[in-house]
Design a protein around this nucleic acid. Sequence first.
DNA 1: AAGTGGTCTAGACCACGAC
DNA 2: TCGTGGTCTAGACCACTTA
Lengths: 247, 247
Amino acid sequence: MPTALRPASPQLDARPLYRQVEEILLGRIVGGDWPPGHALPSEPELAAELGVSQGTVRKALTELELRHVIERRQGRGTTVSRHNSETARRHFFRLRDLSGSAVISRIIVVSCDEGRAEPWEAAALGIREGDPVHHLRRIRLLDGSPRIFERCTLSATLVPGFGVPPGEFAQELYVYLQQAHNVTIRRAEEDLSAAGADAETAEALGKPVGTPLLMVQRIAYDVANRAVEVRLSMIDTERHRYAVRLD
Amino acid sequence: MPTALRPASPQLDARPLYRQVEEILLGRIVGGDWPPGHALPSEPELAAELGVSQGTVRKALTELELRHVIERRQGRGTTVSRHNSETARRHFFRLRDLSGSAVISRIIVVSCDEGRAEPWEAAALGIREGDPVHHLRRIRLLDGSPRIFERCTLSATLVPGFGVPPGEFAQELYVYLQQAHNVTIRRAEEDLSAAGADAETAEALGKPVGTPLLMVQRIAYDVANRAVEVRLSMIDTERHRYAVRLD
DNA sequence: AAGTGGTCTAGACCACGAC
DNA sequence: TCGTGGTCTAGACCACTTA
C-alpha cells in the first residue's frame, strides 16, 4: 500500500520530500515494522512505493545512515542497525589506554533493584519524581583492574521488568536492552567533571576516599528520542583517558 | 585554466570524481588561493571549469561543508570558513554551566616565552625534541572566576615570531592565529582525565593543592592536518561541565 | 530582476556481494 | 548472473539574497 506523499490536494507540509521520506522510514523502524537487522526494500522499490525518485530516497537513506539508524553496503543492501559489542563500544565507550588503543573491558553487576525516581533522576529522564525506575550498579574492569564504578537509572516504563543477575555480565547493556526489551539506544549526552571519590566508589575501586576521579553523567536516548537511562560513571584515569574528537 | 580531471589517457586515479574535486578545492584553500572569507565561484562555474557536472561539485562541496572548511548559504553563495569568536567557541570550547548554557569567558595571558620542545611535546606535535616552540600560559575566567589554567605549546616553525603580551587578551587564540599567522585550526583531539591540582595550577586558580581538576590535553591540527598546538588545560569543574554528544 | 544554492527527477554505468 | 548500492550526468524548478 503506497504511502500518499503528494496528494492531489495542495500539500501543506512544506518540508523537503526527502525529510518526509526519512520520517516515514524512521517511523517504520521505531514502530517495529522493521526490527533491528531487518533488510529494507531496495532503493528502486522504496522509490516506486513512495512515489518519489530514487535520488530522493537515497538522500533520506544517507541521513539515516549518518545517524547510525541504518547500515548500507554495496551489493548487499540496506539493513536496520543492530547493536553488537563492536558498534556499542565504538559509539558509547570513549576510554582508551595511554597509547590510544582500545581497552579490554569486563563488567561486574553489583546490584539491580527497583526504586522510585529522585528529583535529579526524574529531571534527567523527563519523568515525574517518584515514578518507578530500575537501579543498576556495575564495576568495569579495564585491562583487569577495577577502574569504573557505574550507577545507572533506567525508566521502568520504557523497560518494564528489567533485571539482571549480580555477577559478571558479558553483554553490553545497550545490546541487552535491544534484544531483551526492544529498546534501541541511538545517542547519548555526557557531562564531564572531576570529583574526589565518595565512600561507595572508593570501596568499589579500591582507592582512598577523595582520589580524583573523572565523573561522567550520561543521558541515553532511544531511536524515538526518549530518555531511557541516566548514568553516573566514576572513572579512575590513572592508566586511561577519555578521548574526544572536535571537528 | 581548466584543471585536467579526466585526461585522454586512461585515468589511473581510481578515486571517485567528487573526491578529486574535493581535494582540488581544498588544495586551493590550503594553498592560500582562496583565503578565509573568500567567496568561491558558483557551482555551475566550478563544474564548467573542472569539466564535471554540477551534481559532482555539489557532493564535493557538501563534504567540505561537513568538515567546516566552507560555508554555504542559499542565495548568497559559498565562502571559505572564517573563524570568529562564535564559531571558534562552538567548535573548540565544550564547557557549559550547570544548567547547560554557554559561558562568558575572559582570557588573561600569564606569560609567553620561546623554548625547546620537551619529548612529550615533540611527540604530540610531530617534531623533534629540542625543536623551537612557543610556550603560552593563560588563565580563563568563567563567569568572572578563574576556572581554567592553560599551558599551551605551539610549533615555532608553523607560527614563527609568535608572541602575545601579558594581560587580558580579548581575542580567541585560533582567531588570532588565522589573522596574524595565516594558520587555520580545523580540528582537535582531546584526552580527558582527572588529576589533583599541582602547585602552579593551584596558585593560578586559588585552590588548594590536590583539588580534583579536569585535565584536558588537546592537540590542534590545521587545514593541512599539521599539528600546530598541544595544550594542557586544568579545569575547576565546581560550577561547570564539559559537554559531549555521542551519536 | 538576476544569480545563488536547495530540491527533485530520470536515466546511465560501475563495483560489489550473493547465488 | 543478477540485484544491490555507489557514482555521475543533464536538466528542471524553487527559495533565498542582493542589488
